[in-house]
């Protein structure tokens, strides 16, 4: 069954491009070019996957995520952006998006990412993996040992390894081969990183964000 996909982007050209590239392989059930309309239509039509632009007027993708996730937890979000600002990307992920890809992603890769998100997996682009490694490494470096619940807040060596490989440009299949584990295990590592990212102490990650600004 094709996933039912909803597009949110304030740029007509981008929506048109995505629609023409994906319409054959996906069931695109609607689109919106502003936050309020997006929230209403998503709540009404309950798509499987929302392709969400990070930067929009009136609060951006974050506002859509915050409004929808509580009322319709079954709707999954994939953030799509040209943004290079890691804070924006991380905050969207923390608000509940299941992945982040950049807009110059190729059609087949985007399709793959959407299917993955529809299946409940996480989608980490190399850049997102880099942001996450950065966030967690800074956290670990600047905190006293007693401050952190290690189970929750820090990545395991294996998760770190997987993230590094993603950042190096490896696909999930490549990673599975490289580490001699199954693709399923790779996916579960990535999902667990996502979970930690979303659950970890708000204070610490905002620390990280402010440090990024200072640098």
């Amino acid at each position: 069954m094709q996933p039912r996909v909803f597009l949110v982007d304030d740029h007509e050209l981008i929506r048109t491009g995505i629609r023409s590239e994906l319409s054959g392989s996906l069931d695109i059930i609607g689109e919106a070019d502003e936050v309020q309309a997006a929230i209403e239509i998503i709540l009404e039509r309950r798509p499987d996957v929302v392709l969400l632009d990070v930067h929009m007027p009136d609060g951006g993708g974050l506002a859509v995520l915050r409004a929808v996730t509580d009322l319709a937890p079954e709707v999954r979000f994939l953030a799509l952006s040209v943004s290079d600002a890691s804070e924006d990307v991380i905050s969207v992920i923390r608000a509940g998006a299941r992945g982040y890809v950049t807009k110059n992603i190729s059609g087949p890769d985007l399709l793959d990412a959407i299917y993955r998100v529809a299946a409940g997996d996480a989608v980490f682009s190399p850049r997102l993996a880099g942001f996450v490694l950065d966030a967690f490494s800074l956290e670990g470096r600047h905190l006293e040992a007693g401050d952190v619940d290690p189970d929750l807040d820090l990545l395991t060596p294996r998760e770190r390894q997987v993230l590094r490989l993603i950042a190096r440009g490896y696909s999930y299949r490549d990673i599975a081969t490289e580490l001699a584990i199954s693709a399923k295990t790779v996916e579960s590592h990535v999902s667990s990183v996502l979970r930690k990212l979303q659950l970890s102490n708000r204070h610490q990650l905002s620390n990280w964000a402010s440090q990024r600004h200072l640098n």
Binding site: P126, R127, A129, G130, L133, D134, S137, A167, N215
Partner: peptide, 10 residues
């Protein structure tokens, strides 16, 4: 060619 550059730390 396109370069996908990811840098962690500086």
């Amino acid at each position: 060619v396109r370069i996908e550059l990811v840098v962690v730390g500086d």
